[in-house]
Write a protein that binds this DNA or RNA. Structure first.
Lengths: 108, 108
DNA sequence: ACTTACCGTAAGCAATTACTTACCATTTGT
DNA sequence: ACAAATGGTAAGTAATTGCTTACGGTAAGT
C-alpha cells in the first residue's frame, strides 16, 4: 500500500525534479535547491514528503543533511507496475488483432 | 518525456482507482463508474487525462466506449524507474556500510 | 562565547484542480 | 421516425496544495 504515497509524491513536477537530482548520488538540501526555480524551504518541504513516502532517506553531516534515494520506495513502485504488465499486454494485443480484423472487413 | 504526464495522472487517488479497475481487462465507462464514490462525468474526465497521458486507449462499441490499459504508457514509466535503480541501490548500500562503520566506532 | 552556515517549521496566500449539475451528441432498438 | 441508453463537454464551485516570508534550532568555526 506504499506505492500510493509514492505516486502522490512523484505526481508533482517540482518534487519529481528534486527526486531526479538525487539520481546521480547523495546531495545536501542546499545543493539540491541550488539552481531550482523555488526557494530552499520549498525544497525542504518536498523532501519531507518524499521521505514520508519512503522514496528518500537522510543522514546528518555536520550542520547539513544529506539526502539520497531509498531503493525500497522505488521497489514498491516497480512491484505495483509489474502487476499491470502481463494483463495489460494481453488485452492490448487482443485489441490490436480485433482492429486488424475489422479493417479487413471494411476494405473488400 | 512521456513519463511526466503519466506520473501526474497516477498521482490522483481517484484516477489511480480508475486505472486499477482496468487491470483485470477492458471495461466500459459505466462499468468503471459503477460503485465509485464519484459521478460518471468525473470518471469520464479522468479517463480523458489517462488517455492523453498514454496510459489507456479506447474503442467504440455501439453506444458505449470500452477502455483498456495501453502498455506503452506503462513501459515509459518502467523505463523511467529503471534509470534510478542501479545508482540508487549503489548509493544506498554505501550508506548502509557507512552506518555500520560508525556504529562500530561508538561501542568500544 | 559569539558568529556564521545550514536546515526544518509555521502561517498565510495564490493557484491549481477535482467534483457536481446540466446539457448535447451519437448509436441502438422498436 | 422516435425513444432509450451511453458518454463526452461546459460552467461553476469548493477544496486541496504548493510557494513565500519569517522564525527558531543546531552544529561548526573563530
Amino acid at each position: 500500500m506504499s506505492y500510493a504515497r509514492a505516486l502522490d509524491c512523484l505526481g508533482d513536477p517540482t518534487r519529481r525534479k528534486v527526486f531526479e537530482r538525487l539520481r546521480s548520488g547523495p546531495l545536501s538540501v542546499g545543493e539540491i535547491a541550488r539552481g531550482m526555480p523555488v526557494s530552499r524551504p520549498a525544497v525542504s518541504q518536498h523532501l519531507a514528503s518524499l521521505k514520508e513516502a519512503g522514496l528518500v532517506v537522510d543522514r546528518p553531516v555536520g550542520t547539513r543533511r544529506v539526502y539520497y534515494i531509498d531503493p525500497r520506495g522505488l521497489g514498491a513502485l516497480r512491484a505495483w507496475l509489474d502487476q499491470f504488465w502481463d494483463q495489460a499486454l494481453a488485452s492490448f494485443q487482443q485489441e490490436v488483432e480485433r482492429r486488424i480484423r475489422s479493417e479487413k472487413e471494411q476494405k473488400p
